[in-house]
Nucleic acid binder design. Structure first.
Lengths: 148, 148
DNA sequence: CACATTTAGATTGTGCGCAATATAGTTGTG
DNA sequence: CACAACTATATTGCGCACAATCTAAATGTG
């Protein structure tokens, strides 16, 4: 028997429950995303671009996804190499790079449409509970991201 | 206005809410763990060892943490280099490595005891809601880890 | 206009995270 | 005991993830 009253017990730590669940779900996406030739972070970038429907700065994408430029730059470079996005300079501010959809990236959306439901159906909670959980997770991200 | 009815909308995806919340919380741990000289995955390994209180095989640790040997081997090597764990061969099965606590690793527990509460207090939900959320995340990890 | 400050992004270095593979040790079968 | 099948761990290669640092461009102040 492990001592479940210890503050260090893994099963008492919300951080670990989050960490483990997140990795497990990302792993599950892999087999779906392999068919699109995307990694999970690449898929998130494409979701952000499909959603906004107009070129975004690297920083704006980072804000949406909770990632910084050190992470996004190589991800965006690979997406450009695969012909899914274009990276051009902002004419009005030459420091900025505007990330937009290439034709192949726009086309990929139709295929990607089928991915979420395949995963969503595997969550042990559905409907109202599903959305309530999502809202709570959003609150957590916001609470912890506020200072930085 | 973004079209919030799209199945690809980021704000409708539990996977992204999990991903973002998990990273945000791990980032928050960093400032606490820097004082212990641990990264977050290293901290998780130490939690597992403190909890089990006896040497563990690499595979056992991986099962507890949801990580594989390709991830754990370099993490365990760094913990050994810092004198926190020892890695010795199992006498009865020379393929296995048993990961145990070194004296410095045992001593570190007292310092680590103070970390969880600092983080836990920042979660926007507490008490019953906190534990309910943790249980739901455990259900998700189990549901998605079942097939591999 | 000069020049300090700020801002956007890229670069570098370290450390995960995982699939695929390699290797060594163990077990089962005749 | 030989030897095929299996198992536990390590290794390799690729792609994040982030802190720290760098560069260049824009902005503010006199």
């Amino acid at each position: 028997m492990t001592d479940s009253t210890s503050p260090l017990d893994l099963d008492n730590q919300l951080c670990f429950a989050l960490y483990r669940a997140s990795h497990a779900v990302v792993r599950a996406y892999k087999s779906e995303l392999d068919q699109l030739g995307l990694t999970y972070p690449q898929y998130l970038v494409m979701l952000a671009l499909w959603q906004e429907n107009q070129p975004q700065g690297v920083g704006q994408l980072g804000d949406v996804l909770g990632l910084d430029s050190g992470t996004l730059t190589p991800v965006l470079r690979r997406l450009e190499q695969r012909g899914l996005v274009v990276r051009c300079r902002d004419e009005h501010d030459e420091r900025r790079r505007l990330i937009g959809l290439a034709d192949a990236g726009r086309d990929l959306r139709a295929l990607a449409e089928k991915v979420p439901e395949k995963i969503a159906s595997r969550f042990p909670m559905q409907g109202k509970d599903y959305h309530l959980l999502m809202a709570q997770l959003g609150d957590i991200a916001q609470a912890f991201d506020n200072d930085r």
